[in-house]
Computed example of a mutant assay.
Amino acid sequence: MQANATDRRASLLVWGALAIVYVVWGSTYLGIGIAVESLPPMLSGSMRFISAAVLLGGFLLLRKGKSAFRMTGREFVGAAVAGLLLLTLGNGMLAVAEQYISTGLAALLVASVPLWLVVFRFVVRDRPKALTLAGVLVGLGGVAALSLTGGEAAATGGIVIVLLASVSWAIGSFLSSRIAMPANAFATSTVEMLVGGVGLAILGTGLGERLDVTAVSSRSWLALVYLILVGSLIGFTAFSWLLGNAPISLVATYAYVNPAVAVALGALVLGEVITPQIMIGGLVILVGVALVISTERKRTQRAVEGLDGEGEVGLGVRGGQEPQPPGDHVDPPLEQRRV
């Protein structure tokens, strides 16, 4: 009886954490869209990630002391490079793009990250299965359908920018599984957010962004606070916990639930129009991503079962290290590694 109660409680915790990741990370597109209404996109991202890094790093110091931040110079550089690719370029370009396109469209295009990861694997001669490649072709067909809007030049530019952001995220995720990273996942995220935030400040200032506090609306400030506390900290904590307590097949579903949440919130809160083109193109992308994730999960599961009979593996884990989740709302690498 006690075992059943424990299992039920564990199941509720898993679904609760998954619901947080679904809604919180899906809502970050809306948060960014509202923030950039009156805040400079890159400078607002800088404030977001530097603030989140200070809060997360301070919490980690209080809880585990300086030992949590022990890392080699090579590991620090690895986390710094990931932060620049994932946050400075990835999130920075997303924020810029959301000035010109809807939050829902941006989210659906970002859902293509797992597809680009497979493309990079193919380039380095790690040939995926035929079904994985089929999923990539289907998903990229959806990306093409969404990209060919035939609309204004500003919207076309926004689409190009968000696609470049997706490629940058994919490169950052791809490299994160292949270069030295700090052992502690929270220390890794702290470095990524701090370096990424500093990079955004330098890039934004260099491109002429200036912060006029008097011109910022209260709703943009509230959106920024939400992104710091809820998007970057609560969402990341829930995701980190899931990595060690839930099957990867379940955790990976966020990759195609987040865009659906983003589209719904954009329509409900901002009154964004969901056109047939967005519906069909978005659905095609999500089908492709689902095919890629399910095929890769089965391949990895069979490989692990062949070693020791275990049915699930950790997400983005290196031998002898803690799970390595992304710093903030970034699709993790498809390559799964056991401890």
Rank of each mutant, 00 (worst) to 15 (best):
N184T: 04
A134E: 03
S232H: 07
Y254F: 13
M181W: 05
G266K: 00
L137C: 13
E305L: 12
G73S: 09
M47K: 11
G16E: 01
F69T: 13
L12C: 06
A95R: 07
P40R: 06
V81G: 10
V257W: 00
D328F: 15
A107W: 00
G306L: 14
E37R: 15
G271R: 11
G78P: 12
S67D: 08
V77H: 14
R178Y: 02
V23H: 09
K129I: 13
G199N: 05
V287A: 14
G319T: 08
S168H: 10
N91R: 12
A223I: 02
S27R: 08
L265S: 02
V81T: 09
I161N: 07
Y226A: 04
G319M: 08
H329R: 05
V54P: 01
L146R: 01
Q2L: 13
L56G: 04
D308S: 14
P114Q: 14
V304A: 07
S27P: 02
I248C: 11
A185Q: 09
Y256H: 01
V138F: 15
E37T: 14
A255P: 00
I280L: 07
A153N: 00
A215P: 05
V289I: 09
G65H: 13
G151F: 05
A290Q: 06
P114D: 14
T149P: 05
Q321Y: 11
P326E: 03
S232T: 03
F59H: 15
L250S: 15
M71S: 13
D7H: 13
S173G: 12
L315N: 06
L146C: 02
S217D: 15
F59Q: 13
A134K: 02
G135S: 12
V269L: 06
Q321H: 14
G158L: 08
V198G: 11
L60N: 00
P247E: 00
